[in-house]
């Protein structure tokens, strides 16, 4: 299986095709609904973001609480389409990759193609299993949002499937 590392750049992802399985090692940032809303407000106001989006990967995930003695609790993907209205703005700011579950809007597909980004899916509803691939967790921003905080996760061989590739090729076919 193809291995990739973060941060992403076009050279690392341009050969990946929708449907291909890869495993990822490096840094990913969790962000879901409320964090996206806040990031977009900052972008619209021209303010500095709490994380550097350049070459970054956002994981649509709000983990369960961390049990004693463990690195992280259950941490599977949430439904990506809820983030669709925010995604093109983040891609324009340098975001390169996204991890989630399910389909994306036509606008997101076009933005991915335009900015040469990539959208991955991972095993949905398998949060316990996915916790095995996380090596460390650190809160980066929005701790007040609880499970919706932006966390920096260090992952090793995290299993992914390419869902939308840099050319806009999509695993779910055309709408």
């Amino acid at each position: 299986m193809k291995k990739i590392n973060t941060p992403l750049d076009l050279n690392k992802i341009k050969s990946l095709k929708a449907g291909q399985e890869v495993c990822l090692t490096g840094i990913i940032y969790t962000a879901r609904d409320q964090a996206h809303k806040r990031l977009l407000e900052l972008i619209k106001k021209g303010k500095r973001l709490p994380l550097d989006l350049k070459g970054a990967i956002i994981y649509y995930c709000g983990p369960a609480k961390t049990p004693k003695g463990k690195i992280i609790g259950s941490c599977g993907p949430t439904t990506s389409s809820r983030m669709d209205e925010f995604t093109p703005f983040l891609l324009a700011k340098g975001l390169k990759g996204m991890i989630g579950k399910g389909s994306r809007s036509q606008e997101v597909k076009e933005a991915i193609k335009k900015h040469k980004g990539i959208y991955f899916i991972t095993y949905a509803g398998c949060g316990a299993l996915l916790s095995k691939y996380v090596r460390s967790v650190k809160t980066v921003a929005y701790g007040d949002l609880g499970p919706e905080a932006i966390l920096k996760l260090e992952v090793e061989n995290f299993p992914l499937i390419v869902a939308i590739d840099v050319n806009g090729g999509c695993i779910y076919g055309e709408d």
Partner: peptide, 17 residues
């Protein structure tokens, strides 16, 4: 495998509890 791992390690089957 996820269900078995969750049961063995006392982890939530899914993070969305």
């Amino acid at each position: 495998d996820n269900a078995a791992y969750a049961r063995e390690k006392n982890l939530a089957i899914c993070q969305d509890t």
